[in-house]
Design a binder for these strands. Structure first.
Lengths: 230, 230, 230, 230
DNA sequence: TATGAATGAGAGTTCATTCAT
DNA sequence: GATGAATGAACTCTCATTCAT
């Protein structure tokens, strides 16, 4: 029996075949994310998750220690999608300011795509036992680090004022999350892209130095020119 | 048969004496806020709340319809403390900019005083049935209106840029909440007052117009002078 | 403290004044009979009885040992009304056959007047502890004895066949009760008086001897004549 | 997802296997009938039923919606045994009078075999919510229809007087039930068969026409002759 | 591997009864 | 004598988890 320890949850599945484990877990977690998001963690029965995933209730316990494990995996799934999407969308951009802006835009869009799941990640951490909560915090910090890096570069280059990077990061992140958390309020007034531009307006005013602003204007002008020319 | 309906929850208490109802409800809700904050709503048993409040489990049901009602009352209790504290701290300030700043500072301080409860209000709304969730949303909007009013005045006077008031409001509010939500992270690096000043720095940069900035500098200079003189 | 033992329930009320005890008990039992009849014994709360009786819940326990006592008293109240009404309606009739018929008619009418209460007496005896159930049985037998006496006389006089008196009695009694128990079914097809006449038809056919029948015919003829003459 | 709806209660069992559902329900209802009969519905805990049935408390809720459902099923079980037994015992008898008599005898015997359960059916209908009470009434009517049919035939053939069939039916039925309801009183004086014969005596006197009586005497004489000859 | 019937501890809620006022 | 707020034992129902097949 070649036991299979999950790198994050540190749980050894009963099942041997690695590939099967990966696939089953994905299947089960997908169902869990849906249901936990829709109805909340405590309102959702393991039975429901099983039904939605198209497996038996018993099977879940071969891939997951207990219900809380399922929540942990679900939240990590959401956080991972952040960490995966942003670099993908931003990787090729070399201009630090443009990259920072693109990262913000991407974050907002990912949140929009997974609105319910974002709320889940936001609200249900408290339902985890402390040990598991640490894992979430670590993952969260990891995503933030990504954004923080982009901001730090801008500060280092004198494009952003020397604000506290972590605070600034957290502002961006919260702004993105707010789209999900207060969708019921915001969606009445703007669509996602307008929301993003409003956010950028605020943040750039808050952060840009003179030099940063000048640079941005030039870039934007160039972009506008390109757009106009085409 | 002087039955006593809660103005908000629309629940008629079994108990007649108005004053007693007020007192008992306060006592029970205080215990509930503590426990729900510490352990989460679902993890907390009604028995626990009763014990903490120093009453019997049965008594709770003379003042509250069911456990969910207890959560509703608990969240409202927190939101109400916001709506009550801010005007109190700000009422006498006539300068619109100073008032706006003071409101923000107060909000942050109230959140700090009721950190756990703030998290409760933030995270547990999803545990309520839709009808009750509406009540929360209404109360939330009410507090926001307060802040929004202060910001709007500054915009009307040309001190703030003509940004979307609601979004700006929400930024301030979220910044305040973040102190509670990410206390584990922030508290390692600054104390509350530093956190507040950082926030002000960001927001004022984001919002102030030239005129606003000039005015603020003058005011601050005067205050500094006064402080220095004393 | 002149304590006051109830002759039947053998319960000593906390309250001294005999007259008050009688009055309060009547008041409380009246409410209890209503509610137990309408909603059933277990569904009815002592609080409800108190409210209906216009007294406090605590007061009930000064006149009654416990809730079951209330049921006992309620059932006895119904049974007593049988035992009281029949002799009153029949006392002056000297003709044994006519008396027997009148008793039956009265029984049916009393049942009709207290339909819900009859059902209560019928159905709820099982809710009493054995000791109290005995008291009910005794009271029930007492009413039956009344009817049985009238029947026995008719048998002794050769008007009724020598059937088992107890069984015959029980038949009459059940027929009367059935009006209450199956009212939902019978009321669609006849009114009370028709129901009574159908019953008499059956019983007289079952019980009358030749002599009895002849006698009855003569009496009826006479009555008809009297009616016709008037 | 082969879900299993009970034809009468309209409840879909959580369990798929039809045969298992049938068996488990029988097992659980048997226990419920016993306990409800012995101790009454409200005095009996679901736990008790589970223990008596030899299953866990939780399991019951896979086959039954709630405790009241258990009562409904229990009462129906009794009523069904009436509707099943009588035709079985009477089916081969062609003589209408003999059949009617046999039906009555069978009814009394079934009641005797399920004395406690009969009382349950009689007394506990009130504990059901109106919708479920209707189901009972329907089942009850169905049994009565059986008897009513036999009586009607005798009336149509001029063997019975033209009494109201429904009333006559109800008399027979109540007489049978009375054996259960007043067993404590009757059993001191006769055994079941004597009770039955007394009942027949009463009913036949009440119902038979001249022709019917003549026919019966002949049949009885023949039977006596046969018996004597053997 | 997978199933799903079975388990049983646990939680919310009710309500008969008491007792301080 | 009367009140009604307070108590707490008791009961129904749910659901995470297990295990025989």
């Amino acid at each position: 029996m070649t036991e299979q320890a999950d790198p994050v949850t540190d749980f050894v599945s009963q099942v041997g075949d690695e590939e099967l484990v990966r696939q089953r877990r994905a299947q089960i977690v997908a169902a869990a994310v849906q249901l936990f998001s829709e109805q909340g963690y405590y309102r959702t029965k393991v039975q429901d998750v099983a039904k939605r995933a198209g497996v038996s209730a018993g099977l879940i316990y071969q891939y997951v220690r207990d219900k809380e494990d399922l929540l942990l995996l679900s939240i990590l799934d959401v956080l991972d999608s952040y960490t995966a999407e942003i670099p993908r969308a931003v990787g090729h951009i070399s201009d630090p300011l443009a990259r920072c802006v693109a990262a913000f835009r991407t974050y907002c869009r990912v949140v929009d795509q997974r609105r319910d799941a974002t709320i889940l990640a936001y609200r249900s951490t408290k339902s985890l036992a402390p040990a598991r909560r640490q894992i979430i915090k670590r993952a969260e910090r990891q995503t933030n680090q990504l954004i923080a890096g982009y901001i730090q570069t801008c500060i280092d280059l004198g494009l952003f004022r020397a604000v506290d990077t972590e605070l600034a990061t957290y502002q961006l992140v919260m702004y993105a999350h707010a789209w999900a958390l207060k969708y019921w309020q915001f969606a009445k007034r703007f669509d996602l892209e307008t929301y993003i531009e409003h956010g950028l307006d605020l943040f750039l005013h808050a952060l840009l130095t003179e030099r940063g602003r000048a640079l941005l204007d030039r870039t934007t002008a160039a972009a506008t020119a390109r757009t106009a020319a085409s």
